[in-house]
Design a binder for these strands. Structure first.
Length: 816
RNA sequence: GCGGAUGUGGUGAAAUUGGCAGACACGCCAGACUUAGGAUCUGGUGCCGCAAGGCGUGGAGGUUCAAGUCCUCUCAUCCGCACCA
């Protein structure tokens, strides 16, 4: 009997296809499990990261089926996005053709791994029917104020005529043509995710313990809530006049109101309206204007890499508590997008303000002293005791913050405010291969959403992609349309949606019965049953954006009445990367291992076994060719030794007490593996130790030759291993057990009962021997035996203490 | 700077509540079977030492009968965010 993975795997993959083995049942009375691995981008071929992702998900899904749950384990394709356009430029292929050919190819690759996906629920996000409902939701969001259009500063490449994402700007230049990137004000569509900032933050608590701590913290930091004081700096009368009485003052936000008496200047962002006014009306000299303009042309990121820089604006504001005149500067480190784009500067207690004050020789006034007498250089930024702060002097920072906020509120000078770092989500892309944003610009009616009955707004197919500009913009006819409201001539929006929009609701689409997919996007009743996802598996690289957007989208769709779910993913597992030679596998480094080749050479079962055995799922996994051979050998052994098994359709009955020692031991090892299996799926998914315990069981089985023990062991081991190496397990199970062993198996406690116990004897905590004793022996007898066992270690010494830990060890503490 | 992790043999790793450090596997060594072995099987394998024994979980302290595990300090590496006032 020769193990032939190719033959076996083909046979069972066909069997599962023919029998629709992995379609979820419609019966909603059954308890469900929704197991989801993040869907792939159809880049052309699967890589080892995919193999790992889907092997983990598949094991969890198959185990859940075995335990009797109704399991939804779907797959699909995140198929819009830039690589398709890049391929179009490079290979002169239409993005659609390229994408759908890749999908067809990768579908076969995934199939060859024997993954237990539902085939009927598969879809691609670039399918027009998917776009249709996404456009419906976007319009709904627009109508309810969750989506809006505004001007904003973006990265713009003059030679490619396109907006670039932050990641596409390399050292201030376009990643493709190398030309300088400038900041340009452009209109775009935004989703008001900030409206959900607090809920997104609060609900992280629901996920504690079920999501990796790291991811929760990353989301928390990203949302970046901070509490402080917001107040108005009023302009001095002279300054007001200078600004043509167009401004009264401006708002600033601080988290350190306790340092307010130390304010020595105020700084505005280069984009602040007052700065713009001064520049436009040439109220400051040319030299300064050109410095400001230079600042405005740099992105936030580039500014952050530059030295602090600014110019005095020649205007003053009035300190709200001391009535002193405070000079106003523009500074490149002040962000327009946070806290109103203006700050109060306290050089004595803030690093940035300090650096800036030193450079421009501005005054530094200390108003906080350390609680303990410590030395410090530069700014003292910790909490301390207030000094030189009028009636608030001698308070500690924390109390002072509360009192000062209270004072501002009482005197209507300002109020307590909560700020978030989270920004609204810009979803406009000047790209072809994306979902069209379903809006129309009408010269009479303004911005008008497309009518529901006209959805989806689909992409024109007769385009050529050059990489310069947006093909939708340059298409001869596509953008010309009639206004849905007045019927007059109008222009269609040519921006497409960020691809993160598609991945923000795909899991709800899977949960909807495909028989309804033509009529509705999401079915509330179906979603009620299947959601939330019981186990989500994917890469850590999605810790922030995808997971935050998906959480937001779920809440937004809930508030729009589509669903009744608060959090989409109850449990999250972030798998580690697959490495080779210590670094991430990548084509450019030439250290990739092609999954197809491994499957060709050893079979899918070996690939799956190795990848689950080599490291726990959340850790990085170092690829090792000879360890793959080891995995292959184990499966071969499992296959070969099955000759010892006697066919049966139910688990053999064994009289445990009549067994020999080796037989009892083998049985114990088998049931230990079963127990381990139950723990593995409840807790950490530590497949590596589960597999190890199966190997231990095999090693123990080899030391005996009882047919019943072998048969019982295979009945159980094939059950445990089925989620990991399904093909060979189905093959052997069919042969010996008529596929009757893939259900929940009861643990028999009798196998764990020992006739005798082995106790370790230590002297002063060091192991010096061991004894085997009967189970029911008394403590005194044990101590006597123990002392005899290690006599030479305690000879001539006095015993100070004797410790007996039942079933484990004896420790004798001696002196001298 | 802030946040999160991780440090255990030649390698990947394991170790309920503190209780035999290194399970399981890779590699290596030896042997068996073989015309042959990059197949298979059996045995060995933390380090030093001929041995008795000693040492050993990044480092230094501490708590404890007993520490990879708890506490304090410290070093190194990785990841995320980063002028957020």
């Amino acid at each position: 009997m020769q193990y032939n993975p190719k033959e076996i795997e083909k046979k069972w993959q066909e069997y599962w296809d023919d029998h629709n083995s992995f379609e979820p049942k419609d019966d909603k009375t059954k308890e469900k499990r929704y197991i989801l691995s993040m869907f792939p981008y159809p880049s052309g071929r699967i890589h080892m990261g995919h193999v790992r992702n889907y092997s983990i998900g598949d094991a969890i899904a198959r185990n859940a089926r075995k335990e009797g749950f109704n399991v939804l384990h779907p797959i699909g394709w995140d198929s819009f996005g830039m690589p398709a356009e890049n391929a179009a430029i490079k290979h002169k292929l239409h993005p659609k053709k390229w994408t759908y050919e890749n999908i067809a190819y990768m579908r076969n690759e995934l199939n060859s791994l024997g993954l237990s996906f539902s085939k009927k629920r598969e879809f691609a996000t670039s399918d027009e029917i998917y776009t249709k409902f996404e456009q419906e939701y976007i319009i709904k969001m627009y109508k309810s104020g969750l989506m809006y259009r505004k001007e904003n500063s973006v990265n713009w490449c003059e030679s490619c005529h396109t907006v670039l994402a932050n990641e596409q700007v390399e050292d201030g230049c376009c990643w493709r043509c190398g030309n300088e990137v400038i900041q340009k004000e452009m209109p775009g569509y935004y989703i008001a995710i900030t409206k959900y900032a607090q809920e997104l933050l609060d609900d992280l608590k629901m996920l504690e313990g079920n999501w990796p701590n790291q991811v929760l913290k990353m989301q928390e930091n990203w949302i970046g809530r901070s509490e402080g004081l917001s107040f108005e700096f009023k302009l001095s009368n002279d300054s007001k006049k200078k600004l043509g009485n167009c401004f009264e003052g401006y708002e600033v936000f601080t988290t350190r109101p306790d340092t307010i008496f130390g304010v020595s200047y105020s700084a505005l962002a280069p984009e602040h309206p007052i700065v713009k006014y001064l520049v436009e009306h040439k109220l400051i000299d040319e030299k300064k204007i050109s410095i400001i303009k230079k600042m405005q042309n740099l992105s936030e990121k580039e500014r952050s890499m530059q030295e602090k820089e600014g110019v005095a604006l020649g205007i003053d504001v009035i300190h709200p508590l001391t009535n002193e005149k405070i000079p106003v500067w523009v500074a490149n480190f002040v962000l327009i997008s946070y806290g109103g784009g203006a700050v109060m500067a306290v050089p004595a207690h803030d690093e940035r303000d300090y650096e800036f004050a030193l450079k421009y020789n501005l005054s530094i006034k200390q108003v906080i002293r350390p609680k303990k007498d410590i030395k410090f250089d530069g700014a003292f930024t910790d909490d301390g005791i207030l000094i030189n702060s009028g009636e608030f002097s001698s308070l500690d920072s924390k109390t002072a913050r509360a009192k000062i906020i209270e004072y501002f509120e009482k005197n209507s000078l300002g109020k307590k405010e909560i700020n978030y770092k989270l920004r609204d989500w810009g979803v406009s892309r000047q790209r072809y291969w994306g979902a069209p944003i379903p809006f129309i610009h009408c010269p009479k009616c303004g911005l008008v959403p497309e009518k529901k009955e006209n959805l989806p707004v689909t992409l024109p197919e007769d385009i050529t992609i050059t990489g310069e500009g947006n093909p939708l913009e340059t298409h001869p006819s596509w953008k010309y349309c009639k206004c849905p409201k007045c019927g007059g001539d109008a222009l269609r929006e040519t921006d497409t949606l960020d691809t993160f929009v598609q991945s923000s609701w795909y899991f709800l689409r899977y949960a909807t019965n495909p028989s309804k997919w033509q009529k509705i996007g999401i079915d509330k009743e179906d979603v009620d049953y299947w959601m939330s996802v019981d186990q989500y598996i994917g890469g850590i690289e999605h810790a922030i954006l995808h997971l935050l957007y998906a959480r937001f989208f779920t809440k937004a769709l809930r508030d729009l009445g589509y669903i009744d779910v608060d959090e989409p993913f109850s449990r999250l597992l972030t798998q580690g990367m697959v490495l080779k030679d210590g670094t991430k596998m990548s084509k450019s480094k030439g250290n990739t291992v092609d999954p197809d080749e491994i499957i060709q050479k050893y079979g899918a079962d070996t690939a799956r076994l190795f990848i689950l055995f080599a490291a726990p799922p959340h850790k990085e996994l170092e690829w090792n060719d000879s360890a793959v051979e080891g995995a292959f050998r184990f499966i071969k052994r499992l296959y070969d030794r099955s000759e010892k098994v006697k066919p049966t359709d139910k688990i053999p009955l064994i009289e445990h007490n009549s067994l020999k020692k080796e037989e009892k031991f083998a049985r114990k090892k088998v049931y230990e593996a079963l127990q381990k299996s139950y723990q593995t799926y409840q807790k950490e998914y530590s497949f590596n130790t589960l597999i190890a315990s199966c190997m231990e069981a095999m090693n123990a089985l080899n030391a005996q030759d009882n047919v019943d023990i072998w048969s019982e062991a295979y009945f159980i081991l094939l059950n445990i291993l089925e989620p990991i190496i399904p093909h060979v397990c189905w093959e052997l199970s069919e042969k010996y057990f008529d596929l009757n062993n893939f259900t929940k198996i009861e643990i028999k406690d009798e196998v764990f009962e020992e006739d005798s116990i082995t106790l370790v004897i230590t002297v002063n905590g060091k192991k010096r021997g061991d004894i085997e004793v009967a189970k029911d022996i008394s403590k005194e007898e044990i101590l006597d035996l123990a002392k005899k066992n290690i006599e030479k270690w305690i000879e001539g010494k006095s015993i100070i203490k004797e410790i007996y830990v039942p079933n484990k060890l004896v420790n004798i503490v001696v002196k001298g």
